[in-house]
Design a protein around this nucleic acid. Structure first.
Length: 166
DNA sequence: GCCAACGTTGGC
DNA sequence: GCCAACGTTGGC
């Protein structure tokens, strides 16, 4: 609490066949809830760490050319993932209840495309980006922190002004 | 399609 | 509490 709140940055991973960046753009208000995360480490980030106004790199995984395809912004902080309470949901978890929610989610909103996308090969061949969490072998977190310099480098690759700075 | 890495489960 | 078995993820 000593220092002022600083914007943080995150990478969120999705299989585009399941939910793509295009899907986000076509959502109402360009907003979606980031539901269905069922991993405790990621849950803790969603519940405790990810704050309104934080920046998000949207990553497409499990495809031919895995890539960071765009930017989004956190517009609602951690709240209970209600899909866990729905027996018909494929993310249903009977251990989670309204009184004692286990799983959490945030809402994110489309901000900008990365054009062209920053591919995994791009990341691999960059001295700073090769160290990103998403590059770690065996990493399976669907939400993970991104360092500020990593964020800046990625925007610089495309000559983009940081839409989060005015 | 393969398989390494990881998280979770459940028997003991 | 250990750990083997299993299911899933995700790059390649």
């Amino acid at each position: 609490m000593a220092s002022k709140n600083k914007r943080r940055y995150w990478l969120m991973k999705s299989e585009p066949t399941c939910f793509s960046f295009e899907d986000l753009k076509q959502s109402s208000e360009h907003v979606t809830c980031w539901d269905g995360v069922r991993n405790y480490q990621a849950r803790n980030l969603l519940r405790d760490e990810i704050k309104k106004g934080d920046g998000v790199l949207f990553y497409h995984s499990n495809i031919k050319i895995p890539s960071i395809v765009g930017l989004a912004e956190v517009i609602r902080e951690g709240y209970p993932d209600y899909t866990a309470w729905d027996p018909k949901s494929e993310h249903y978890d009977p251990k989670s209840s309204v009184e004692n929610p286990i799983w959490f989610m945030v809402d994110i909103q489309y901000v900008a495309d990365l054009d062209p996308p920053v591919t995994r090969d791009d990341l691999k061949s960059h001295p700073v980006l090769e160290k990103m969490g998403v590059m770690r072998k065996g990493n399976r977190l669907s939400v993970m922190p991104v360092a500020e310099n990593e964020w800046q480098v990625i925007l610089n690759l495309n000559g983009m002004a940081d839409p989060f700075k005015k």
